[in-house]
């Protein structure tokens, strides 16, 4: 841990992108669960995610990064699904 005289005045963070060092997934009470067969890869989940917890590859949804997903549920709320079936639903942690 840094000593007081090693800190930047104003608590300004000068190292860009260091949020990756802080794994915040343990805050989660509900986890998003992805069902691939209901997914149309619209990427609404990816664009709405307030963190960067939706993983994609070649423009397609591939799953969640649970190290950072705090379980807010926005992805599940926005997911249009396929034929009335959601591709993302929230399930309680530990169940």
């Amino acid at each position: 841990m840094k000593k007081w005289n090693e800190l930047v005045p104003g608590a300004i963070i000068l190292d860009a992108g260091n949020a990756v060092q802080f794994k915040t997934g343990s805050w989660r009470a509900f986890r998003p669960q992805w069902t691939e067969e209901n997914c149309i890869h619209c990427l609404f989940c990816w664009i709405y995610c307030p963190d960067m917890a939706v993983k994609t590859e070649d423009g397609k949804m591939t799953g969640f990064d649970y190290d950072y997903c705090k379980g807010c549920g926005i992805c599940a709320r926005e997911c249009p699904g396929k034929k009335g079936k959601k591709a993302i639903v929230m399930v309680e942690e530990g169940k």
Partner: peptide, 27 residues
């Protein structure tokens, strides 16, 4: 430390918890 210096991105106003807040006030 201007935010508008886009070549050196930075953050103002972070959450600082008990492990560092005391040190920032000392500064």
């Amino acid at each position: 430390y201007p935010l508008l210096d886009l070549k050196k991105p930075k953050s103002y106003g972070p959450l600082i918890l008990p492990d560092l807040y005391h040190e920032y006030k000392r500064l």
